[in-house]
Design a protein around this nucleic acid. Structure first.
Lengths: 173, 173
DNA sequence: CATTTTTTCCTGAAAATACAGAACAAACAA
DNA sequence: TTGTTTGTTCTGTATTTTCAGGAAAAAATG
């Protein structure tokens, strides 16, 4: 492939490919995870062609996943004066990455679950005994737990990194 | 299909199918999520044939996913005297479910990521300036964040539910 | 306007995953 | 032993997801 690579690029390539594999294990598409890893470790914003070349993927694939990452707020678009291309830059601050991912997962994964639980609880509000009552209680328990957890999460992710750190230290100490 | 259904079974069926769909969104196989939902709302432990019939799935599929759930420690096997069948019962306590899932995800998803980050950091330990240095720092930042987060998580998941609740209330209040 | 560059969408192929159904194995009964 | 019940694994098929490559659209330039 490419000759004359700086030493750190070797490690970077391992990071990118391996992060991609890990991604698939947590339900994220491999290419998206790889692009994210690539951008997180990019000294400069990269354009679509850069990404295509580095990962050896098609334009369509690169484009879709870049835009998906933008949709996740993990990547932003940079435009340069006198250059019509779009460049992409990933958030590198770990705390901000954490907050962004938490918010998105809450919105996409937890809130629909809570809606379902509430719906099922409402449908069985009348049950006063037996299995129906237990079902209703189980729905309410799950709802309460998730809702409370979300409140806690909201509190944490609206904190500044330093405050969160301080708070966590107190828990550990 | 089945005639004469208790009212709550209607809600239960919605819960099971919808929980299955949600499952696929967070990277869990639909059948596994459905079986989990079914068992979480089962008044009695169920055997493989019960699950097959309720979900209209094959024996192989039911069996594999039941055993996977057992592997996740979310479901346990019950045997009854004078009955060779295995029955399956899901943990219903939300706090215990949370603790179990957290432990497994930590082991399967976070720890491999930390190993990768440390490896990549070690490979670039020598970099003292420029992009190499930044890459090394990024790996260390991510490692530090995840490792610290895991410590916090460990502390929380080894707490009793009541203690965790009290602690969370203090954060919110 | 036409031309070029860049972005977006679409189609079909390939790969990965999930699944049914059957084959197989083990445990027990008669 | 043989048959029966339950549990496990395997094989092929169907579904879903991912992706390349090209067409189409949009935007910028002259």
């Amino acid at each position: 492939m490419s000759k004359e690579q700086p030493a750190w690029e070797k490690a970077r390539e391992e990071f990118v490919t391996q992060w991609g594999s890990l991604g698939t294990q947590w339900g994220i598409n491999r290419t998206m995870a790889q692009i994210h890893a690539l951008l997180m470790t990019a000294p400069e914003p990269m354009c679509t062609d850069d990404v295509m070349e580095k990962l050896q993927i098609s334009r369509g694939n690169a484009h879709t996943n870049l835009k998906d990452l933008v949709g996740w707020n993990l990547v932003r678009i940079i435009t340069r004066k006198g250059d019509r291309k779009e460049y992409f830059e990933a958030e590198k601050d770990v705390w901000k990455i954490f907050v962004t991912i938490s918010k998105e997962r809450k919105r996409r994964e937890i809130e629909p679950a809570i809606r379902l639980l509430r719906d099922c609880a409402a449908q069985t509000k009348g049950e006063t005994s037996g299995p129906g009552r237990e079902f209703n209680q189980q729905m309410k328990d799950l709802d309460e737990f998730l809702s409370f957890g979300m409140k806690v999460a909201d509190t944490v992710i609206t904190m500044k990194h330093a405050s969160a750190l301080q708070w966590a230290m107190r828990l550990l100490g």
